[in-house]
Design a protein around this nucleic acid. Structure first.
Lengths: 145, 145
DNA sequence: CGTGGTGGTAAAGCTGCTTGACCATGTGCT
DNA sequence: AGCACATGGTCAAGCAGCTTTACCACCACG
């Protein structure tokens, strides 16, 4: 029996490895399906474009990347028709990124697909245990910063 | 009370995002410290070199990357003195990768650092809840394949 | 022996970024 | 009105962490 303060890491595999494996399961699932040429990085960006639109700089800050990187992804997704951009009338320097109907559909589809994966996981470990798992994950993910 | 089958994902943030945030916390922690020029990818490789040694091809398969990529990392870590390689006397084509004492120390230090992060997390959500979280994570990470 | 499989390397290319340089527009001050 | 400085965005180059393609060296077999 381990002491009360012990973290049950004695299996020799630490959290980073385990989370990496879970992430890999998601990655592999999506990689094995046809998502019209979009990859995870694109989903991540698209997912962070709110309905009201957002400036490239703000989007980039949200994703913790440079505005240049943000701009590259926006250009790509504009080419595939998932977002469009308009000049901000209040500030003619700024471009506001908006999701197209196609972008909306993609986001909805991705959300649904992930929920399906979560349901499978919940079944594997039991819905209640999964709910607890997810609650702790949310608390830790909310984080100190 | 949610239904028995429900996944508590209604916060609109899915697992992938949450896990990404946790991984980012680990990444940022290591990035803010001096690890002698080694990065996460190097730790990952080093961590998968067992005491008895391992062939480059087997190491690469373990990490689910090509043998070429494996070879590149081994070359790098050989340059930094964290691993050494010897020709397999049974099969002169093969190179066996072994950790040096320096490599051993690094692995131990990384393990200790991660355990410290885990202890912080356990304190934040409570040791018991963290233990449950980690158990579920291990089960899901063990995976179907 | 030769024929095919396996261990490894070399070179080029791709993704997902970053850094640095720059221009255009906005904001505040005088 | 004029100027300084900040901010939004783009262009070009480069780096990390891989993959693909091509190849050579050695092994195992019949």
């Amino acid at each position: 029996m381990t002491s009360v303060n012990a973290v049950p890491a004695a299996d020799g595999v630490h959290v980073a490895v385990l989370m990496g494996r879970l992430m890999e399961q998601i990655r592999a699932t999506f990689a094995g399906e046809d998502w019209g040429g979009l990859r995870q990085s694109h989903f991540r960006l698209l997912w962070n474009v709110p309905a009201e639109g957002i400036r490239i700089t703000d989007l980039a800050r949200r994703l913790r990347m440079t505005k240049q990187a943000g701009g590259q992804f926006v250009t790509f997704l504009e080419g595939t028709g998932h977002v469009r951009t308009v000049r901000d009338p209040q500030d003619r320097r700024a471009r506001v990124v908006l999701r197209t109907p196609r972008g909306d559909r993609t986001v909805a589809a991705v959300d649904a697909r992930i929920r399906r994966i979560e349901r499978e996981w919940a079944q594997r470990v039991g819905p209640q245990r999964y709910a607890q798992f997810r609650a702790v994950l949310a608390e830790l993910g909310a984080g100190p910063g």
